[in-house]
Simulated scan of single mutants.
Amino acid sequence: MSHHYFFAVPLPPQTKRVIKETCEKISEFLPFHKWVHEEDYHITLAFLGAAELTKVKEAIEDMTSPLQLMSPFSLQLDSFGTFGRLSHPRIFWVGVEKNELLHQTRSIVFNSCTKVGFELETRPFSPHITVARKWKGAENFHSHLLKEVELSDNFIVDRVVLYQTHLDRTPKYEAVETILLNQ
């Protein structure tokens, strides 16, 4: 069985806990088919799909020096959002405030991956943390239900992680390589 890989910003345990506790409260009135396990929360920078490890290692080699020149930076949880049809979203997510350093980190990772031959998603980068999938409510999804929900936390981004996906496990993402920013 081939595994899929992706590069992402991991979240610290305290931020995962804040998101999980909020999701537990709102899941009572937001029926999604699948809520993401808290250990799988992350911000994807580049999804590689099924990949040869030699190519993945080349990408890691290329991005390591530029990432190590970057200093850790703070990110703030910001809002909820969806992807897919507004009435029946396929992805429900938590966003982060706009941050130039996050976009810079993503550019380094993206460019290193494309340089070694990965064909990546070309849509504009929309940083988010997927928390649920596939709306299953009998009624349409209404974002106004979230107006009263507070979600506030900030955390330090100090690393980029290569994850391997295991669809047969929970949690399903395994960290296989970590690149620390300048400590």
Rank of each mutant, 00 (worst) to 15 (best):
M1R: 14
M1D: 13
S2P: 09
S2I: 11
H3Y: 11
H3Q: 11
Y5S: 08
F6N: 08
P13R: 13
Q14D: 07
T15C: 08
R17A: 15
R17M: 13
I19G: 01
I19V: 03
K20T: 04
T22F: 07
K25C: 05
I26D: 09
P31S: 07
F32W: 08
K34R: 15
W35F: 07
W35N: 02
W35R: 02
H37S: 12
E39R: 11
Y41S: 08
H42S: 13
H42Y: 09
T44Q: 01
L45P: 00
L48F: 07
A50C: 12
A51H: 02
V56E: 01
V56I: 12
E58Q: 15
A59M: 00
I60Q: 02
E61F: 10
D62V: 12
D62E: 15
T64H: 03
P66G: 07
L69R: 14
Q76G: 13
L77A: 05
S79Q: 14
T82W: 07
G84H: 02
H88P: 10
H88E: 15
H88M: 13
I91C: 05
L102P: 00
L102Y: 04
H103I: 12
T105W: 02
T105K: 01
R106D: 03
R106Y: 07
S107C: 12
S107A: 15
I108F: 02
I108S: 01
V109L: 00
C113S: 01
K115G: 06
E119T: 08
E119I: 09
L120C: 03
T122A: 09
T122R: 12
P127S: 07
I129S: 07
I129V: 13
V131E: 05
R133P: 11
W135S: 02
K136P: 10
K136H: 05
K136N: 05
G137K: 04
N140Q: 02
N140W: 01
H144G: 09
L145D: 06
K147R: 13
E148V: 06
L151C: 04
R159I: 01
L162S: 07
L162F: 09
Q164I: 10
Q164A: 13
L167M: 14
R169N: 14
T170W: 04
K172P: 06
A175D: 03
E177H: 14
I179E: 04
L180M: 14
